[in-house]
Every structure is written in C-alpha cells, then in structure tokens.
C-alpha cells in the first residue's frame, strides 16, 4: 500500500532574479510503501532536510504535490496541516525537540494531548511505549536531567504514540554518541519490524543508515541513486560507503 507519494517536487529559494535563486529540489519524485524504512542520504546542501520538511508539511514546495495516505498536503492550510501532523505523522528531530518544562512522560503523550484523546488511552499507550524503549524509569524526570540517548528515545516514543502512518526522522543520531546512536537506531528498527511503522530518515551517518531497508541518495535536488538492503547490516554499510564515494561525498562524511 502506498503511504506517501511525492510528484515532481520543486523548491526554489531566493529572489525573483534567476541568477540569485537556488534550487533545493529539482523535480523530485518519491513513493513510499507501507512498512518501508527508507534512509535519505546525500552531501551537504543536496536538499535532504528541505525534502523532509516538505514531505512532512512543515514547509511548502514551490511546485509539485505531496500525498500522504491519500490526502494532498499542498491543499491544506496551516491549521489543517497541524491537525494532520499530530494525527497521522510522527517526528524525530536532531535536537530532540522536547519541551523542557514537561516531564518525559508528558512529552511523550503530547500529540495525544493536542489531539484531545482520553486520559486512559494516553496512559495505556505511554506506558506501553515507554517500556518498549526502556525509559519507564525516568517517566517523571525532566529532559534536562536525562542523557541525550534517553531524550532521543523519548522523542522516538513521542513520534509513534499516535500510531502514525509515517514517521519522519531528521538526523536522529546527529547529536548522539555511538552507543546512544545504536540504541536509538535499534528503537527505530524495532518500530519498523515489530509495529510495522513506515519510517523516512534523513541522515549523514552511514552507520545509522545501515539500519534502513532502503537508501535513496540525492544530489542537486533529485534522486541520484537507490540501494536496497540485502544480506547483513555490515554488507549494507559497506555498500552505502561505496555509493557515497561514487556520489562524491567523502567516506568519512558524517
């Protein structure tokens, strides 16, 4: 089943003057099936984050369409998009994006609170997801009192608490050390395999990318290459590095 489809996306930054404009996206097409775990990679400035922001409805494209679960995001206004985001989408950000004045548990149930669900449902889901990611011990602590890895796992929990159609992750390991990165990537992998969540992850990190099932490489605003995981993660990791080399990025470009 098709969860997301983007057709001919263009995003142009800059003024009216042709010479001063920058094309961040240049006629990009993308389809994501239910249950996929896709990594988006590419050198700096290739348009990865722009793509993610447009696909998730945080930013609007200059032209082209984005459909998620049959709904056209382009036609929605900001408030409709807000409701759509909290009901159908999940987010994991590089800087965690947690609210400092709320406890870990309250942060996790935020999308449900915004969506005015019943307290029983919030409690049940929060407890389930917190034990899944082993953060139930810190439920009543505040974000500034827990480690980066725990914060990111909190963010991951928040991303899936509303059973979203698709989860967008923007450099989720960007601010983490390798141990925390591993634990967060394992969380995402489990989400994908056990809950059958659809995930789109933008990353620089080849190691993090190796947890995906499929990687698309973008360069100059379009999809340049696409590889699908076969065999072990180690083999996939090596292939990713090769592709990056071909793409012109450096092998240690993380």
């Amino acid at each position: 089943m098709n969860v997301l489809s983007a057709v001919n996306l263009q995003k142009v930054y800059g003024g009216r003057d042709e010479a001063n404009t920058t094309k961040a996206l240049n006629g990009l097409n993308l389809k994501i099936e239910s249950g996929e775990f896709i990594g988006v990679m590419g050198p700096s400035g290739s348009g990865k984050t722009t793509l993610l922001n447009i696909l998730s409805g945080i930013d609007k494209p200059t032209s082209g369409t984005v459909e998620i679960s049959g709904k056209n995001l382009i036609e929605m206004d900001n408030d409709q998009l807000a409701v759509f985001r909290r009901q159908k989408l999940g987010f994991v950000f590089q800087d965690f994006n947690l609210i400092d004045s709320l406890t870990i548990k309250e942060n996790i149930i935020l999308p449900l609170i915004l969506d005015k669900r019943s307290p029983e449902q919030m409690e049940a889901r929060a407890n389930a997801v917190m034990s899944l990611f082993e953060i139930d011990g810190i439920a009543d602590k505040y974000p500034y009192n827990v480690s980066g890895g725990q914060q990111q796992r909190t963010a991951v929990s928040r991303a899936i608490i509303n059973h979203p159609d698709i989860v967008f992750a923007d450099e989720p390991t960007g601010n983490l050390d390798s141990k925390s990165s591993t634990s967060v990537m394992k969380c995402l992998e489990r989400m994908n395999t056990e809950n059958n969540s659809t995930i789109l992850m933008v990353t620089h990190d080849s190691f993090a990318a190796s947890y995906c099932k499929k990687i698309i490489f973008i360069k100059d605003g379009t999809i340049n290459m696409e590889i699908v995981r076969k065999g072990t993660r180690k083999e996939f990791f090596d292939r990713i590095l090769d592709c990056l080399a071909v793409l012109g990025g450096e092998r240690n470009d993380i």
Binding site: V83, F84, N97, I99
Partner: peptide, 8 residues
C-alpha cells in the same frame, strides 16, 4: 517545537 508536532 510544538508547531512541528502539530499545534494549531
């Protein structure tokens, strides 16, 4: 932050 998660 809340806007990104979906607040109107």
């Amino acid at each position: 932050k809340l806007y990104k998660i979906g607040i109107q």
